[in-house]
Amino acid sequence: MSTPTDSPSAAADRDPVQEARDCLEQALAALDRLREVLPASSSMPPPDAEGGESS
Rank of each mutant, 00 (worst) to 15 (best):
M1I: 12
T3K: 11
T5N: 15
T5M: 14
T5L: 07
T5P: 01
T5F: 09
D6L: 06
D6A: 09
S7G: 13
S7H: 11
S7A: 14
P8F: 00
P8E: 01
P8I: 00
P8M: 01
A10M: 12
A10Y: 10
A10L: 07
A11D: 09
A11V: 05
A11M: 10
A12L: 05
R14Y: 03
R14E: 05
D15M: 01
V17W: 04
V17E: 08
Q18F: 14
Q18G: 14
E19Q: 04
E19P: 00
E19R: 01
E19V: 08
A20R: 10
A20K: 11
R21S: 09
R21G: 02
R21L: 12
D22V: 06
D22I: 06
C23L: 09
C23S: 15
C23I: 09
L24S: 06
L24T: 08
E25F: 14
E25T: 11
A29M: 11
A29R: 10
A29E: 14
A29I: 04
A29L: 09
A30T: 04
A30E: 02
A30C: 06
A30S: 08
A30Q: 10
L31G: 05
D32K: 08
D32N: 03
R33F: 02
L34V: 01
L34M: 12
L34A: 09
R35T: 05
R35E: 10
R35I: 04
E36I: 05
E36S: 04
E36T: 07
V37S: 09
A40N: 13
M44R: 14
P45E: 01
P45D: 00
P47K: 01
D48P: 06
A49K: 04
E50D: 10
E50R: 07
G51R: 13
G51F: 15
G52T: 14
E53T: 06
S54G: 09
S54I: 05
S55A: 02
S55T: 13
